[in-house]
């Protein structure tokens, strides 16, 4: 049971990573990051079944932080879109050295 849950969350995490690495749209990348977070949440919950409730407590924290992050992140993306009329990350490279 634990192994299945871990395998499933690993697959979800890998999908998230691939999404972050391959997509260019900021919104999609953002969603992929959420996917990775939730994969980790799943791992926590799965472990909580074996090692006690600490894992579930962590999940609550992660969801809180993820919500805050989503709020700030989306606000930034909207702000960028207003200025540059794009959310394509390859076009946003002002920090180039």
């Amino acid at each position: 049971m634990l192994a299945d849950a871990l395998f499933f969350s690993a697959v979800l995490f890998a999908i998230g990573v691939v999404g972050v690495l391959t997509r260019r749209n900021a919104i999609i990348i953002f969603m992929s990051v959420e996917l990775m977070l939730n994969a980790v949440n799943l791992t926590f919950v799965a472990f909580a079944q074996v090692y006690g409730y600490a894992g579930q407590v962590f999940v609550v924290f992660v969801m809180t932080v993820a919500a805050a992050e989503a709020a700030v992140g989306l606000a930034i993306i909207i702000s960028i879109f207003r200025h540059r009329h794009t959310v394509n990350l390859t076009d946003i490279n002002l920090l180039k050295g």
């Binding site: 690495l21 990350l89 390859t90 490279n93 002002l94 180039k96 050295g97």
Partner: peptide, 14 residues
Amino acid sequence: GSAAQTGETGTYAW
């Protein structure tokens, strides 16, 4: 060193 700073999020993620 500065060439490594492409400014592209994708590179950093990789």
